[in-house]
């Protein structure tokens, strides 16, 4: 456990000493800030626009960070041979994979917290402006639940990137991971298609794909939250359970593939 923690901390250290991360966070904060301008041209729904743009920015930039750090997690260490001195020590390859995952998970968590603080500050400003016009707007707790669901989604993306990173090159890993990320957004449609098609064979294939491919549809609550709608507790429970199971499968796969590998 201590070894996994050491590897995770080192992964986090590497991420925060990389300048690219800061430019991405800065970009996300600028996007969140830009919602102010969008809010100006949308009278009376400033809060809605700010929440919508803010959460979407967090989700997209978070995904970019997860993909581009995730695909390099293992590959970079193999390529630069920094792994040699690590794996010769009493460290199992599974421990290495888990350490890498938790390191990036913590990096993403810190990023989301920074972006969430930015969003709350912008919202507070918008609220102040509205108050001066005699309107009352609320910052709902569901905003933070939405951020939590974005975090779960990012963990899944990290897991996917890690699986590809354990055997493939960064370019291919990025393509596969991004493809799965986009497919995952519309996964529910695949199942619907099968149901609508009415053909048993098609329905079996589509439902097979539905369970195999990641399903991010249930994590996307941004539209509802921006309209001030609460998030059903059952959905959150379902998402947490889904993430745990799906991640367990992804991490086992990554660890298994990586354990078999001959390092070049």
């Amino acid at each position: 456990m201590n070894k996994i923690l050491a590897i995770a901390q080192n992964t986090f250290k590497e991420a925060i000493r990389d300048k690219i991360l800061y430019s991405l966070i800065l970009f996300a904060l600028l996007m969140i800030g830009s919602s102010l301008i969008l809010g100006m041209i949308s009278i009376n729904i400033e809060t809605k626009v700010t929440v919508d743009v803010g959460l979407s920015s967090m989700s997209v930039i978070g995904a970019v960070i997860a993909v581009f750090i995730g695909i390099n997690l293992v590959h970079k260490e193999v390529d630069k041979r920094t792994l040699y001195s690590i794996l010769a020590k009493p460290v199992r390859r599974t421990e290495f994979i888990l350490g890498k995952f938790f390191g990036l998970a913590f990096t993403l968590f810190v990023n989301l917290v920074i972006m969430a603080i930015g969003l709350v500050l912008v919202l507070a400003y918008v609220k102040g402006q509205a108050y001066s016009r005699g309107q009352v707007t609320e910052i709902h707790a569901s905003l933070f639940v939405a951020v939590f669901l974005i975090f779960l989604q990012l963990l899944l993306i990290t897991g996917i990137a890690l699986v590809f990173s354990s055997f493939s090159t960064p370019t291919l890993s990025a393509m596969f991971t991004l493809a799965l990320y986009f497919i995952g957004q519309f996964n529910a449609d695949i199942k619907h298609f099968g149901v609508e098609a009415g053909n048993v064979a098609v329905r079996m294939i589509t439902s097979g794909l539905y369970y195999l491919l990641p399903n991010f549809g249930n994590f996307n609550v941004i539209a509802g939250v921006s309209h001030g709608k609460p998030i059903a507790a059952a959905l959150v429970v379902y998402d947490v359970a889904y993430s745990i199971v799906y991640l367990a499968i992804l991490l086992s796969a990554a660890a298994m593939i990586f354990s078999q590998r001959n390092l070049k």
């Binding site: 201590n2 070894k3 050491a6 590897i7 080192n10 250290k13 590497e14 000493r17 990389d18 630069k80 041979r81 920094t82 040699y84 001195s85 690590i86 010769a88 020590k89 009493p90 460290v91």
Partner: peptide, 27 residues
């Protein structure tokens, strides 16, 4: 103990941090 050929280590770590990391991996 093992010293790889043409060793490449984490270039973002200081010598001290690198050794501390190595030590922790030995528990």
């Amino acid at each position: 103990g093992y010293l790889p050929e043409n060793p490449y280590f984490y270039d973002y770590l200081t010598a001290e941090e690198f050794l501390a990391y190595s030590g922790r991996l030995f528990g």
